[in-house]
Amino acid sequence: MMMWRLYHKLKKKQCLFFIIPIFFLSCEKDERDGTTCEKNCFVFSGIVVDTPANNAVAHVEVAFSFIYYNAFLRPSIPLGTIRTDAKGKYSFRFDGTKYLAKEGYFASSVKKDGYYLDGYYPDSFHRVGMYQLSELQFDKPTNERISLFKRAEMEIHIKNVKKLELTMLEVSYGPETRNIGFVISPVSANLDTIVKVTVPADIRSSVKWKGYNSTNPLQFERSETINAKSGELVKYRIDF
């Protein structure tokens, strides 16, 4: 309201003087678009492919930021976001001189509907690259190859049909190289629950589960192979 009153108190000649600086500010070059830097640029480039076919993935969001070593006291600086082209390639450039005196590193992360990398946070951006200032040279592109999993969902129905006395049930899932999971502890004799998780599609994966108690640690251990298709909901049952 105070700004509105000030505007009406100005004369016509003063109004022109008041508006011109705002116009120039709005036309200031924004280097966060990743394309406008012309010299002394840090250039992050690469390609995004799927797993296991290694086909290029188009329209992946690739975000870049500068992260201080002492991140607790100072928040990261977003540099901008770019999308991969039809061949899965990206190139992001920005003025590197602004960061030479800062203590930190650059990071890249990716996101794409129908794909994921971190099974615990499948809907979030996934950190894929870290770049130290000492490793970068002006106007010399990096060459990063990023692999994403096609995404499927799985409902795991877990039931203690034998009413076993267990202190812990450990369940893991996914490909052997990136197997993740969860723990249920303590395990009720009446346990009957459904857990929904994200699993990789079009690739061989496995589901493993182990039961423990305090007197005789490992009670049982099982493992089975699963195959999910992209976008599919797989229903799986664990009875013990």
Rank of each mutant, 00 (worst) to 15 (best):
K39G: 06
I158G: 04
H157S: 15
K140F: 06
Y7S: 10
P200V: 02
E103M: 03
I226G: 02
V60H: 00
A56E: 08
I180H: 11
P175I: 09
G181D: 07
T193A: 02
M2K: 14
V128I: 10
V195T: 07
E135R: 10
W4E: 12
V171H: 08
S230W: 14
C15T: 12
E103H: 12
K162V: 03
F64L: 06
T81H: 06
M154S: 02
A86V: 13
N227I: 12
S108E: 13
T193S: 07
K210T: 14
K39C: 02
S108I: 00
I226K: 10
R237A: 13
I156R: 05
D30N: 12
K12Q: 11
V234S: 08
I47V: 14
K235Q: 12
G104D: 00
G129N: 10
A58P: 03
Q219G: 02
G104I: 05
V171G: 03
V43Q: 14
D123M: 08
A71T: 08
I22R: 02
S45W: 04
A152W: 06
K140Q: 12
A58K: 14
S124A: 11
V199M: 07
V187S: 01
L6N: 11
T177E: 15
Y115N: 05
D239T: 12
P217H: 10
W4D: 10
F24A: 08
K208T: 14
Y115R: 04
G88V: 01
Y7E: 05
G114F: 10
Y105H: 07
C37A: 10
M168I: 00
T51F: 00
A189W: 05
S205P: 02
V187K: 02
T193G: 01
L218K: 06
R178D: 09
F66P: 01
P52M: 03
K162M: 06
G231V: 07
R93Y: 06
G119R: 05
